[in-house]
Design a protein around this nucleic acid. Structure first.
Length: 770
DNA sequence: AAAAAAC
């Protein structure tokens, strides 16, 4: 439908809605009893708002929405009909934004349109004539049903009322009941705890004390340090890797995968051996046999073959029984039990070359191969010296290698790939920048906000040297994006949906992409994302360089690696384990009926606070509750318009509010300065999600705290989750009014250092934040 | 059952 956006503006002035034939009766679908936005925004305003309301200089170029909101908030216009609370909800400015869609709208639409029909979608303006009869009928139906005018554009304007329906939903008392109902579901979840398979599996996996035991073991290893020191100078020296093969052979004789992992965690020495070995291997198990299969190999490449992601032939770690693999299934499997949640499994960790902070002492960006222009831009962004992950990956990226990079949250991954791709484009830049040139680099991100943030970072680097970027995401009109592409950009940064859309429309050509980055790569390889990502990567230039980054990079990315990264370098940073984290974790156990009161007390703490919920509705409800209680709060989730999403984030970043209540849309990658406290109103299902949510605080070595509020029934499950994440957090019973809840945003001055354990160098868990 | 991702 975005195609229609290219129509003359006059045809769709939103205010024309008034004159459109539509029902005026209450209760009718087309009914609106108030027109809050009408006239409030000129078309220009609206467009600017779509851009986040900023000029190229990053300064707001229109009246900040919060100013308008403040006024509008009091106006009767913001009251909707019905609702047990008499419209009180709509004191919150975000309630009534035109264009917000009811939940399920997307899904219904997708089903109707059949996302799989993608390729068949009429690409260019001739849709009406060329459509097959059935589509024609569908469209007519749409029209009749929704906007007699036949102008699809009106359909969209029509969305407003539907959105109000949604508000109705959320405002009424019954709504509340609904929600309570839902939160009561916690019990149900708990029941699930007892599901046989999972339990077994978990017990099996962690064997209870085994891990712990290993850890103790580990802490005894002073030799580790010794080893590492020994290793230092070799850091950039890949040729050194050969000899280390011995260690590996040694290890592989053990053949015990499971132990391998624990092994790893046990021995610092082992670890360092591996560090030298080079980035390449994912799978040690089939190393032996594979080598034979492989036939003749360059000897210095001996370890290369190990770079396999195959886990299938591994008898032990193979989890394919436990978690069905649906690599090639487009739609979520319906035949497998839909109620069976994906199991939270600790996947194989990828072998990586670890870089230590000591290794890079004195190293500058220039040393890593970046030109003066980029180094200067980095400096002006506050990055004087490379962080370890940057020092680790930048040389390999510039060397043209495929790279997998794992660096914990807030460790500087964006620059770790952003800076070298700008450098690469600069080096291979043709004499002239042609109008409409196809982009030569692509960055994929899982959320629009993250894509925008990455664009901001990379644009800052590129601008210094004449490399241009653009962000390609959904939720906003495509005009501007298309225009940018038409003018020609060097780097495209975006989310899969819109990118595919524009490719389909032939407005984006990925054929010239020489470097493609997948940020949050493990997440991007999950069910709904994998296939689009694959399709997109397949369109890049054959043999193009691929970079995968994530704080929790694990073998979930194996499918992508197999197809696109034949000989990747794998990098991580040594010493990035939970015990060296600057984040303090607590679990607060409270009666489920006290939860909201406890949460409200928590968010009264000073400083920026990000609250995570499992559902959009709960995020919305909590934000509303906080706001009603006099704590300025905004929400961020997929039920909001993109404009609203941007605004919420911007409000937090600019300090207009201190509390953001978000779904996991904000869990990964989003950077907000100085988040004092992360609150998990619902515990996450996956340990990786825990790590990413937690990573919104404690960035770049700052202190941070995470509190997870759970009902007593969730204790066990939560403990298991923490175990997988290798996080130690006390479980503290709390009730509303407890003093403890008032002092959460100030972590104890001396970093919470449990004497013995905190000093143990705990290797990162598989795929964990290290 | 949820979240994200195109119009």
């Amino acid at each position: 439908m975005a195609r229609n956006d290219s129509r003359p503006e006059g045809a769709r002035r939103p205010n024309d809605r008034d004159s459109r034939p539509g029902s005026r009766s209450k209760g009718h679908r087309g009914y609106r009893d108030e027109q809050p936005s009408k006239g409030r925004w000129s078309r220009d305003d609206r467009e600017r708002r779509d851009q986040g309301g900023r000029t190229a200089s990053g300064r707001p170029n229109w009246t900040p929405p919060e100013a308008r909101d403040r006024d509008a908030r009091r106006g009767p216009a913001f009251r909707t009909r019905g609702g047990a609370d008499g419209g009180r909800d709509h004191q919150r400015d975000d309630r009534l934004h035109r264009g917000e869609r009811p939940r399920g709208f997307d899904r219904a639409r997708d089903e109707h349109n059949g996302r799989g029909r993608y390729g068949a979608a009429p690409a260019r303006g001739d849709r009406r004539d060329d459509r097959p009869a059935r589509d024609d009928r569908d469209r007519r139906f749409d029209r009749d049903d929704r906007s007699r005018g036949g102008d699809r554009r009106f359909d969209r304007d029509d969305r407003g009322p539907r959105r109000f329906d949604r508000d109705d939903r959320s405002q009424g008392g019954d709504r509340r009941f609904d929600r309570d109902d839902r939160s009561r579901g916690g019990d149900r979840r708990f029941d699930r705890d007892d599901r046989g398979p999972r339990r077994f599996d978990r017990d099996d996996r962690s064997q209870g004390g085994d891990r712990r035991f290993d850890r103790d073991d580990r802490s005894g290893g002073g030799d580790r340090r010794f080893d590492r020191d020994d290793r230092g100078p070799r850091r950039f020296d890949r040729d050194d890797r050969g000899p280390r093969r011995f260690d590996r052979d040694d290890r592989s004789q053990g053949g015990d995968r499971r132990l391998d992992r624990d092994d790893r965690s046990r021995g610092g020495d082992r670890r360092s051996d591996r560090d030298d070995r080079g980035p390449r291997r994912f799978d040690r198990d089939d190393r032996g046999p594979r080598r034979d299969d492989r036939g003749p190999r360059r000897s210095d490449r001996e370890d290369r073959g190990d770079r396999r992601f195959d886990r299938d032939d591994r008898p032990r770690r193979d989890r394919s029984d436990e978690r069905p693999r649906r690599d090639s299934t487009y739609y979520p499997s319906k035949e497998s039990n839909p109620f069976e949640p994906k199991e939270d499994v600790v996947l194989e960790r990828l072998e990586a070359q670890a870089t230590r902070a000591e290794d890079i002492e004195g190293v500058t960006f220039a040393d890593l191969g970046l030109g003066a222009g980029i180094a200067g831009a980095l400096k002006s962004m506050g990055a004087e010296r490379p962080f370890p992950i940057q020092a680790a990956t930048i040389p390999d990226v510039i060397a043209g290698r495929d790279v997998l990079g794992r660096g914990r949250t807030g460790s500087g991954k964006s620059i770790a790939f952003g800076a070298p791709i700008v450098e690469m484009l600069l080096r291979g830049r043709p004499e002239r920048r042609e109008l409409g040139r196809a982009p030569r680099a692509l960055v994929l991100a899982p959320t629009r906000e993250l894509a925008q943030q990455l664009n901001h970072t990379i644009m800052g680097l590129g601008r210094a040297v004449g490399i241009f970027t653009t962000v390609i995401v959904g939720g906003v009109k495509q005009d501007r994006q298309v225009e940018a592409l038409r003018r020609g950009v060097d780097i495209v940064i975006g989310t899969p949906g819109r990118i595919e859309d524009l490719v389909e429309q032939r407005r984006l050509n990925l054929g010239a992409v020489e470097i493609a980055v997948v940020d949050e790569a493990d997440h991007m390889c999950e069910l709904g994302f994998l296939e689009p990502v694959q399709r997109i990567l397949r369109q890049t230039k054959p043999g193009s360089q691929k970079l995968l980054f994530s704080a929790t990079l694990d073998s979930e990315v194996q499918t992508i690696v197999k197809e696109f990264l034949p000989e990747p370098a794998v990098h991580e940073v040594a010493g990035e384990e939970q015990s060296t984290s600057t984040i303090d974790h607590q679990v607060l156990v409270t009666d489920r009926y006290d939860k909201d009161a406890v949460l409200e007390q928590i968010v009264r703490n000073p400083g920026r606070i990000v609250v995570f919920t499992r559902t959009r509705a709960y995020a919305e409800r909590l934000a509303e509750q906080f706001d009603d209680a006099g704590i300025a709060a905004v929400s961020l989730h997929g039920d909001l318009t993109q404009a609203k999403r941007n605004r919420s984030l911007e409000k937090l970043r600019r300090g207009k509010v201190d509390v953001l209540v978000a779904t996991d849309v904000a869990a990964r990658g989003i950077h907000i300065d100085d988040v004092a406290l992360v609150v998990q109103a619902d515990p996450p299902d996956e340990y990786k999600t825990y790590l990413h949510r937690a990573g919104r605080t404690g960035r770049a070595g700052n202190d941070g705290r995470v509190v997870t509020v759970i009902a007593p029934a969730r204790r066990k499950r939560t403990q298991q989750l923490l175990d997988r994440a290798e996080i130690e957090a006390p479980m503290i019973p709390v009730r509303p009014g407890d003093d403890l809840l008032d002092t959460l945003s100030a972590p104890p001055a001396p970093a919470p250092a449990p004497p013995a354990e905190a000093t143990e160098a705990e290797p990162a868990p598989a795929g964990a934040d290290a």
